[in-house]
Design a protein around this nucleic acid. Structure first.
Lengths: 135, 135
DNA sequence: CTACATCCTCAAGCAACTTGAGGAGCAAGC
DNA sequence: GCTTGCTCCTCAAGTTGCTTGAGGATGTAG
């Protein structure tokens, strides 16, 4: 009936060590043990791990994941809105990061291009890219 | 003539601790000491720190920054092209990250919207966002 | 019965810093 | 001259989200 950590790792695309880590961090609740002392998982644990993995991939931190899971299990109807708010504020974070990346890409593209021009004919070591960055 | 670490921190937008950290990591070369044992910086150090900060902001890791700075000081004309290549490959990293963020934003936006709809009228705790993520 | 895989726990390592403890120096106000 | 308070010093540990390794027990297959 119960599954080993290795099997669960395979099913959830989490490493064995990561699963133990999540347990230690309190994201999994209590995990039962078989008679031989090994962790024994059930299907709900796999679902929960997949959810955790999904949330992590979406960029939520461990604490945020815990909050979300707790809200999910809360009978409180306000919890759902808390979840939405967390998601919304997370979108802001993502947008800010993306804006940064856009700017960085533009800068690097320019720099690489001008560097390429300047360096082709042996100009060095006052590489344009360094000069431009230095400014 | 020489400047204190606090002054340099102010001029470079690096924290005092970060400047000491960069020194420890070998990004700054040898920093002189005043008679009282305190670090003594000159203007070239400030320029170098600004360059380091710029490169870090662009997403280069400490090791990459060291490589770039070394290439910059190298009399070798090939070094400039190495710098360009480092920049170019870094652009790829940035593009990949941005693509991820685009996808994440789209997902989260959808989720938050549908969650908002479902939760407005007290539906809970099977919040749509959770259900959608779980899938 | 002997490998070999898997599991266990604890501990340390990674990036790139930040934070804190504990102590000394220096400049200014009284 | 003395106290207050800021800056500086070093060394050590904490942060996040894991991964990697040591050292040892157990399970499975040939």
């Amino acid at each position: 009936m119960s599954m080993t950590i290795g099997f669960v790792a395979e099913k959830t695309c989490c490493s064995v060590a990561t699963i133990r880590y999540y347990e230690e961090k309190g994201l999994l609740g209590r995990i039962g043990r078989a008679a031989n002392g090994r962790r024994a998982y059930g299907w709900p644990d796999i679902g929960r791990l997949r959810l955790i993995r999904r949330l992590r991939d979406l960029g939520f931190g461990i604490d945020a994941v815990r909050t979300l899971i707790e809200a999910m299990h809360s009978p409180d109807s306000a919890a759902c809105l808390d979840v939405r708010d967390l998601a919304l504020s997370h979108i802001d974070v993502i947008r800010a990061k993306r804006a940064e990346l856009d700017a960085l890409e533009a800068i690097l593209t320019d720099l690489a291009a001008s560097c390429s021009d300047a360096c082709r004919n042996g100009h060095s070591p006052d590489c344009t890219i360094i000069e431009a960055i230095r400014a």
